[in-house]
Every structure is written in structure tokens, then in C-alpha cells.
């Protein structure tokens, strides 16, 4: 079954064509990476997937639903980490996890999520007092506290220290093993290679290529994902 089907998605902000005809599919249980230059349209695409934005044209199906119409029903099955968001300054880590847990029909035990993401020592710390990486970790944990079928993570490990990054990879590995569909946006090739079954390369609002790392490398006649990416981006420019 396809977990996500995006067909000819288009979205403009005024004169800016942020997404200009994007098509891809993600299979259930797959870990799918999206990579591309700043302003390529990754966040816009992701926000259309989770129902935060309504597409100008094209169709989007997520877990069999239209996210623009069925945002709330889908939200129970989706975990989301936005590239840019925050929480009230004075809310404490444990309170945020408990509150988000109460939003979902079939939530995980928030204490266990807190434990797994190494947030226990920060339980009584206010969001406003967390470091950037600590906030990121909390936002990831909040994406998972609802026990989702699918997670959408925009800039998964930006701002995390090397150990927290590896730890996050391990936890994403656990999600994969449990059959969760994962869509992740990243600027790191090692991360994409380590985690993703397939990748879409976005450039200027279009899909320059999709495939496994091996396929992209073979298609471009290069030696690594990074070189393949640079070749694809350059060819499109």
C-alpha cells in the first residue's frame, strides 16, 4: 500500500512558486528522505502533506486521506516535527509531553517517551531555558508521543550534537523496525544514507530525481550520494 501519493503538487506564495509540480509516492513502512537546496520547496511540500497548507493544484493522499480536508482525523495518525515552531516559554518538558499525550486517541505513555529520548533530566526545565538541541529533542519526542503510524520530520537532526544525532538515528531505526512510515527532510547525506530507503531530490520546486541511494549514484555515474546530489542539482540549474 502507498502511505503517501503526491501528484503534480503546486503551491505559490504570491509570485514565488515554492512547489511547482512535485510527484512522488512513499510506501507504507518506508523511510523516505527529502533533500534539496534552501528554498527548494521541502518545507512547503511537507506542510501540504500534514494539512497545514492547502495545495493550489495537484492531489495529495496521506494514509488514504486528503490532508487539506481531513487534517484532524489524520493528525491522530501522524507525528510531526516542524522546521520552525516552539512552545510557550514557561511550559516544562514533562508538562509538554503530558499535554501532547492527552491530545491523541492512542498515545504512548509520555513518561516512557521522555525516558527514551533522554529528557528525564530535563523534566522540570522550562522550554524557554532549554538549549537549541534540547528543544529539538523535545520536539522530536512530542512528534512521537501520539504513537503515530507515520512521522514527518522536517530537518531531523539540525542543531543536535554528534552523540544526540547518532542516538536519534537509533531511535528512528526503532521506528522503522516497528513499521512506522517515516518522511524526513535533511541536509545531511550521511543521515539520508544511514536511514532512508529512498530519497527525493528537490530543486527549485521540482523533483530532480527519486530513487535509492544506489540508483541515484548509478544514474549520475558518480561515487557517492553527495556527488550524485551535486550532479542532479547542477544539471537542473
Amino acid at each position: 500500500m502507498e502511505a503517501i501519493e503526491v501528484t503534480d503538487l503546486r503551491k505559490s506564495y504570491g509570485d514565488t512558486r515554492a512547489v511547482d509540480g512535485v510527484t512522488f509516492t512513499v510506501r507504507a513502512g518506508e523511510t523516505f528522505g527529502i533533500i534539496g537546496h534552501n528554498g527548494a520547496g521541502k518545507t512547503t511540500t511537507v506542510e501540504c502533506l500534514i494539512g497545514l497548507r492547502r495545495a493550489d493544484a495537484g492531489t495529495v493522499r496521506v494514509l488514504g486521506e486528503d490532508p487539506a480536508r481531513r487534517r484532524r482525523a489524520l493528525a491522530h495518525r501522524l507525528g510531526v516535527q516542524l522546521q520552525d515552531s516552539s512552545l510557550p516559554e514557561r511550559i516544562k518538558v514533562a508538562e509538554a509531553l503530558r499535554m501532547f499525550g492527552a491530545f491523541y486517541r492512542d498515545a504512548s505513555d509520555w513518561r516512557r517517551v521522555m525516558e527514551r529520548w533522554g529528557l528525564r533530566p530535563l523534566a522540570r526545565k522550562a522550554f524557554g531555558d532549554l538549549s537549541g538541541g534540547q528543544r529539538q529533542r523535545l520536539m522530536l519526542a512530542l512528534a512521537l508521543v501520539g504513537n503515530p503510524e507515520m512521522v514527518v520530520l522536517d530537518e531531523l537532526t539540525t542543531g543536535l550534537d554528534p552523540i544526540a544525532r547518532r542516538e536519534t538515528w537509533r531511535l528512528i531505526g526503532d521506528l522503522k523496525a516497528a513499521g512506522t512510515t517515516v518522511v524526513l527532510v535533511s541536509h545531511y547525506f550521511d543521515e539520508i544514507e544511514a536511514l532512508c530507503d529512498r530519497v527525493a531530490v528537490l530543486a527549485r520546486g521540482r523533483v530532480a530525481a527519486t530513487g535509492t541511494t544506489g540508483e541515484l549514484v548509478a544514474r549520475t555515474g558518480t561515487a557517492s550520494l553527495e556527488e550524485a546530489y551535486l550532479a542532479l542539482e547542477g544539471a537542473d540549474r
Binding site: I50, L52, R72, A75, S85, Y104
Partner: peptide, 17 residues
């Protein structure tokens, strides 16, 4: 401030209306 700091946006991705 909830709107400006994207707290509302984050909450809009959860099942709460």
C-alpha cells in the same frame, strides 16, 4: 506571541482544533 512564535502552528498539527 503564540502565533508569532509558531506555537499555534505546532498545535495545529495535533488533533486538537
Amino acid at each position: 506571541s503564540y502565533r508569532e512564535r509558531k506555537v499555534l502552528k505546532r498545535l495545529a498539527t495535533t488533533p486538537i482544533s
